[in-house]
């Protein structure tokens, strides 16, 4: 309990970061949305449908990134007693789940006019769907136990095992013949898209990252408050018994 009190004290200093990240989220989202919807050019093949990319691709990146954060935090918590690691993992999973479902739904809306179907059992789509189920499983597991520690441990094991899905998602377009196109932005090659499209995409990517940081801070504070509420209730009950 003492470590949670220390964490709560430290997180009060994170309020400045929260203010900055939330402001950055709003500013970047407005710029990215207006740019992507009204000022970026239509694609020569996809036409206006390319605009869905400005929501779909950042949501996919952040769906993967949230899982990486959750899996690393889970691995750290399994290696030792780091209360913050458990809280980071628990706070990250609902945010990652929302990013992943946004990616899946916007992908389906893009797929209908482009591929002629909302859904195909393609390797990339299927592995993203598995990622969504992993998030749901993690959320259910950490909340399934009365004992906070046992729930966190069970969720951590699932998150670490489920990490195998991350390279499968990343390389699915290279390992199998898929309908989904390969990555347009890689570290080793120049981006396969025009700068007029790349810039709004990067702005939206930054906006989603700032949103993730903001929500992670809010949810960690919320989880610490929940732990403190539980501890206060226990202490009140014990005082009540003594009276």
């Amino acid at each position: 309990m003492h470590c949670f009190a220390k964490l709560a004290y430290r997180l009060r200093h994170a309020r400045a970061l929260l203010l900055w990240s939330s402001t950055l989220t709003v500013v970047l989202l407005v710029i990215g949305l207006v740019w992507g919807l009204f000022f970026s050019p239509a694609d020569y093949q996809q036409g206006e449908m390319v605009r869905i990319l400005y929501i779909h691709a950042p949501a996919a990146w952040m769906g993967l990134f949230s899982y990486i954060v959750m899996a690393v935090a889970s691995a750290v918590s399994l290696m030792g007693k780091y209360p913050l690691a458990n809280l980071v993992a628990k706070a990250s999973s609902p945010v990652g789940a929302v990013f992943t479902i946004i990616c899946l739904v916007t992908g389906a809306l893009w797929g209908k006019p482009m591929w002629g179907a909302y859904w195909v059992w393609d390797a990339r789509l299927t592995s993203m769907l598995i990622l969504f189920f992993l998030y749901l499983g993690h959320i259910a597991l950490v909340n399934a136990f009365d004992d906070y520690g046992r729930g966190a441990r069970a969720g951590a094991i699932l998150a670490v095992i489920g990490f195998i899905n991350i390279p499968i998602i990343k390389f699915s377009v290279d390992w199998w013949n898929t309908l989904h196109q390969p990555a347009s932005i890689t570290r080793v090659a120049l981006p396969a898209m025009a700068m007029e499209m790349l810039l709004p995409l990067l702005v939206m990517g930054l906006a989603f990252t700032a949103y993730y940081v903001t929500l992670l801070l809010v949810r960690i504070r919320s989880e610490i408050a929940a732990v403190q509420v539980r501890a206060s209730r226990c202490s009140l009950r014990s005082i009540g018994k003594r009276l």
């Binding site: 869905i52 949501a59 929302v98 479902i101 006019p113």
Partner: peptide, 22 residues
């Protein structure tokens, strides 16, 4: 280009989802 329902629903679901979670 006739794709407005798909594009606007994508943006609506995307931003709406983020807003609801926040």
């Amino acid at each position: 280009g006739g794709y407005a329902p798909f594009i606007w629903s994508s943006y609506g679901i995307g931003i709406g989802g983020l807003l609801v979670l926040a």
